[in-house]
């Protein structure tokens, strides 16, 4: 392979003038992590609500929950990014649209909202499956003791459902983390975008991508380890 390797490139100053290429990649890593965490907060909250709605006895919340999941699951994430970033400001009343367009850090906020609501549909699937995997008698036992529906979910169903779905939720979190890279198309300077600009500036394409790859693998290991600890921390004795 006639390619001129130059691993020292990371310690050369980047043309942005604020530090080395390594600094550039690290800042990308931080944006990736921050975006993923913020989006996860939305995904977890909205996804839990939607997932619960799909297990309620009423027809209306069920239909709403199903519609939400179908809508967000059947449109590619990239298209959703474009809708939030390019289309939403145009279809809102003009003053709102202008405000959105002039917002500083717009790619970040857009990515967080878009990714959060997208991932929420996947979280909702897991939460619904977790609740439905519980024996029917658990809900009845809560109800029979006089707990309201909300209390039954809060104290009986959800604590058990979350324990069951911790492993699939870990993969959803990792998907969410990897999906932050889609936001490079709307200008978010996350890790993949930074590796790409390093390649464009320095032409050291494989060094840049290798570094990004290693960083992604590192985050994955950290998340998987943390999830294992969480699982042990919340394990129920006797099961």
């Amino acid at each position: 392979m006639n390619y001129n390797w130059n691993w020292g490139i990371f310690f050369e100053a980047s043309p942005e003038g604020t530090g080395t290429y390594a600094d550039m990649l690290l800042s990308g890593l931080i944006w990736t992590i921050v975006t993923a965490l913020c989006a996860w907060v939305i995904a977890f909250a909205v996804g839990s609500v939607i997932g619960v709605m799909r297990t309620l006895p009423g027809r209306v919340p069920q239909a709403f929950g199903n519609a939400y999941v179908e809508l967000f699951r059947n449109v590619p994430l990239l298209v959703q990014m474009f809708l939030w970033f390019f289309v939403l400001p145009e279809v809102l009343p003009e003053s709102w649209g202008t405000w959105l367009k002039q917002m500083s850090n717009a790619p970040f906020y857009t990515a967080v909202v878009c990714l959060g609501l997208f991932t929420a549909s996947r979280v909702a699937e897991q939460v619904r499956a977790g609740i439905q995997a519980l024996p029917r008698g658990q809900r009845m036992a809560g109800t029979a003791l006089g707990l309201t529906t909300a209390q039954t979910y809060r104290y009986v169903l959800l604590p058990n459902a979350y324990r069951i779905i911790l492993p699939p939720m870990t993969s959803e979190f990792l998907n969410n983390l990897k999906n932050t890279s889609v936001a490079l198309t709307i200008g978010l300077l996350e890790l993949t975008a930074r590796a790409r600009s390093m390649q464009e500036f320095s032409f050291q394409v494989f060094e840049a991508f290798t570094a990004a790859t290693l960083l992604y693998i590192l985050i994955n290991l950290v998340v998987v380890t943390a999830s294992g600890l969480l699982e042990r921390r919340f394990a129920v004795p006797g099961r």
Binding site: P135, G137, Q138, A141, A144, G146, G238
Partner: peptide, 17 residues
Amino acid sequence: LRSRVGMVFQHFELFPH
């Protein structure tokens, strides 16, 4: 009303967590 009616189930239905 339910809080004044005790119920015991076939499969116990203790809360495992």
